[in-house]
Design a protein around this nucleic acid. Structure first.
Lengths: 139, 139
DNA sequence: TCTTGACTTAGACAATGTCCAATGTAGGAT
DNA sequence: ATCCTACATTGGACATTGTCTAAGTCAAGA
């Protein structure tokens, strides 16, 4: 993730302790925290970081295309640092955990042109829901 | 939609003016209101209806499988009365309007079994995003 | 028509997210 | 090394969306 910080600095991002901490928290694969979870974890390393800054920074990372915003339920959005690998999500309807998954075929191809109603379609997201093995064995 | 009311009454639903009004508001195709929009429209016909009742009734309709809950952005959930026809959604990233669309192929087939990680997948939702013709011409 | 349990209500509360004015600071300029 | 200043951060008020509860109301069966 440190190359991320380099890349952003090259784009004129001012590098602050707060931004570095947020980026560090998001580091890793299969990480899907809510904004407040990111804030809680960031607070462990930088106790005075404010909620507003975390929201701002996450929003910037999303605009810059470095992080994906995932709204799986109607609850809090989750942030996915794995933005450079095309993937979709598999969500457990019981416990809410998320897995990244990779598809066989481009879901955009499944939408016939007449069904696009003149929209310039630029993005597709596919969410699979089901019960994860862990919840299933405990039921 | 009046057959809906009949069906629900058969399932032990007590038929009240409030529930009738909510169902009437949801009547129609390509209707995707938020809960508060439903409340506003319901208020036109039944001024004293409360927000809590609208939320309750929508929740019941969803549990009964008569209405779909759609969370397209991280904002308010929208309610889709077209629950009995399999379909997906196309959302305008600018103005937020939603169209129902129908796919060529089953999106479940695009997820290879090894990518299911032992989940019992029961549901798929596909959301396409883009700029609608109206927003595009006004840009 | 009476009765009763289900329904509705108003408003407090909770969770998530946004905004703003005051303050602080990264990094280029000197 | 220090100074400047535009950009970043802060805290707290506010907004939006949704949930809960206690008290009152009513649909529909007896």
């Amino acid at each position: 993730m440190s190359d991320l910080l380099e890349r952003l600095r090259g784009r004129g991002w001012r590098l602050t302790a707060q931004r570095r901490v947020v980026a560090e928290v998001l580091d890793g694969d299969h990480v899907h925290y809510t904004a407040d979870e990111v804030h809680a974890k960031a607070t462990e390393r930088l106790p005075e970081i404010s909620r507003a800054t975390v929201y701002n920074t996450l929003g910037e990372l999303v605009s810059l295309g470095e992080v994906l915003e995932v709204s799986t339920d109607g609850r809090a959005k989750r942030y996915d640092p794995n933005a450079h690998h095309d993937h979709q999500h598999l969500v457990c309807s019981r416990c809410g955990t998320i897995r990244d998954v990779h598809l066989d075929s481009d879901p955009l191809a499944a939408l016939p042109v007449p069904e696009r109603f003149g929209f310039q379609v630029s993005e597709v997201s596919v969410t699979y829901r089901g019960i994860c093995p862990n919840c299933h064995s405990h039921s």
